[in-house]
Design a protein around this nucleic acid. Sequence first.
DNA 1: AAGCATACGGAGCGGGCGCTCCGAATGTCA
DNA 2: TGACATTCGGAGCGCCCGCTCCGTATGCTT
Lengths: 188, 188
Amino acid sequence: MDEHEKPLRADARRNRMRVLEAAEAVFADQGVGASTQEVARAAGVGIGTVFRHFPTKEALLEAVLVERMRGLVEDARAAAARPDVGVAVFGFLEHVIGQSAAKNAFADALAGAGVDVSGVFAQVREELLAAIEVLVRRARDEGTLRGDVGVSEVVAVLVGASHAVRWAPPQAQANTVTVILDGLRPRG
Amino acid sequence: MDEHEKPLRADARRNRMRVLEAAEAVFADQGVGASTQEVARAAGVGIGTVFRHFPTKEALLEAVLVERMRGLVEDARAAAARPDVGVAVFGFLEHVIGQSAAKNAFADALAGAGVDVSGVFAQVREELLAAIEVLVRRARDEGTLRGDVGVSEVVAVLVGASHAVRWAPPQAQANTVTVILDGLRPRG
DNA sequence: AAGCATACGGAGCGGGCGCTCCGAATGTCA
DNA sequence: TGACATTCGGAGCGCCCGCTCCGTATGCTT
């Protein structure tokens, strides 16, 4: 919980950000199997620098994920703040799916990281789930979301859709998302 | 296309099958990243034997996939032969999803193998797509499947559902599949 | 400007991977 | 049963990976 870390030197702070951005890009289009060397090269720094800022490849991956999830938390909260939450939910879901498709699969990343229960990762994950829970509840109340689905189902569908869209041929992607999300709407 | 290969010695044929089965099991619960050593160990043979039968790890993976896809082709054709095709389609889809969940993700495997267009793999893949196409067309005619989805969408949804179900907590899995497959039904 | 703590780069280490190679073992056929 | 082609096992090769270590370079403070 403490935030007692000494302020980084200017170059160190700059390099940390470069590495983080490079990692996001590299893992995005080469998969999480991409080597740390590759990340260092893309960031324009030595490997040593990468490992000083992120002591482990897994830690680097986690940092990237946390960054992205923070963004999603904001998006979810923004959607919840809108007057037409019921509609906004689907906008949020499409947004997440589109983002996962363009970059790397939301799920692989989420599942791939070995989820240690005590950590920043777990904390942000909880925040995200909580934010989604609000959305789900409100949307169900408004009748735009099936009554028999909870956060678990919505998240699972999200993960599935992210993969589906990555797999579908370009001209079928939009329709695939529509079809899957339609499954979340009440029937009738 | 030729089938001019000399008949294998009895032990060779037996070992080939053992390796194939072991590979299916190992890749299933350790992921495609599992080492060839591990497969050899599980099959009770030396690594040399594995590589004689399948000259490359990729070839081994492909063989496993082909085997599984052959099974799916039969299932799809069986479903198409039933009088209630419209209903049978969904049974088929659930079957595939369940199988992918228990073993390894249909999609990862399918996408993971570097799809060389000329080969047994591509051939079986075509057969499977063709079989599914028949199902899709018949089901649409019967009105149990949305009119605006084609094979691409159905396969993509299948892939997505396979991942979704692997990600969902146990008690939400059945419901997740239901939700996703409902997206394929006509709205009404 | 000088001195010091901090951060940098990249050669190199240990380890695991896919794959090869060949002497030993085994099935096959006369 | 003997002789031979086939197949087997697993030590070992080269490669790439994550990660460490330390001499050098750089930013900060006085």
